[in-house]
Design a protein around this nucleic acid. Structure first.
Lengths: 149, 149
DNA sequence: GTAACTGCAAAATATTTGCATCCTT
DNA sequence: AAGGATGCAAATATTTTGCAGTTAC
């Protein structure tokens, strides 16, 4: 059985704690809650998603600032989208402050509208025209996920 | 020599005209001007870019509506970005209303901040996990373009 | 106790909508 | 002439900033 939006497993308190401390962030309620959302949801989250999921408990501004802190520490990264809503996802690899290694494919489901990190699918290399020097690659595949067939 | 931002070649008036008519859009000043921007700039344009390049000649709202019309007719398409600014680019292939075939790689230059369509570079196929059905692929490579080396 | 985090208010920015006028066909 | 496109005003929505009160360490 797979995790759906309904079945929200809980992340252990110590796990949240450790992850925050490891990144030199003080452990606060909003940070724990928002970090937990990332840990338990397999998909990427937009600012709006987080606001909905936290049931108005936090100030909108706190969410903005928390996401920014997580970004700076390399806990989360942004995922390119075609629309104008930034989506964030947990960095699974060895992201360090300022430098991300996020070389897996992202899948956007046109059914449930979720963005899922396909950690097992590596972005293939491409040969660029003369003169272009690549430093980073992103790939988004859209379609229908296993839940929405 | 390559086209820079300075060297803006002109698109022929009849070309603009034909392209608009072919898509059942009435030929107006703002549409011609904005379509020309797409034709002469090799990169993708964000709403803000267009406002800057048109020197305040058009109302902000007109730009929004023009881009929306172009999208609906399949003249332009959006390009995924990590930030919260939608970028648009001309559809070079046989895009039809509602369905786009845009299977080339996009290059984002961290130097000049431009997004360039690499029409000659096709997005490679990837093998997805069981259960995922792909319908569309997007790939963005960032790095340094030939002008910014 | 101190530095950092949060919430509120407000500013700045971005996007959408309604409507009267003007332009294209 | 008719339908659609534009510009203006204004309504919404989104993001950022300042500051005072609160919390983590």
């Amino acid at each position: 059985m797979r995790k759906g939006v309904q079945t929200i497993p809980k992340a252990s308190a110590s796990e949240l704690n450790d992850l925050l401390k490891k990144n030199q962030l003080s452990v606060t309620g909003s940070r724990k809650r928002i970090l937990e959302l990332f840990l338990v949801s397999e998909g990427a989250l937009a600012h709006a998603d987080i606001e909905k999921m936290t049931e108005e408990k936090f100030d909108r501004v706190t969410v903005y600032r928390t996401l920014q802190s997580f970004m700076e520490k390399g806990i989360i990264h942004t995922i390119p989208t075609a629309g104008n809503s930034i989506r964030y996802a947990l960095c699974k690899q060895d992201c360090t402050e300022g430098h991300h290694h996020d070389n897996h494919v992202h899948f956007f489901c046109t059914g449930c509208q979720k963005t899922i990190c396909l950690d097992t699918v590596t972005i293939p290399n491409v040969k660029l025209p003369e003169g272009f020097t690549p430093t980073d690659r992103q790939m988004i595949v859209s379609g229908v996920c296993e839940d929405c067939r």
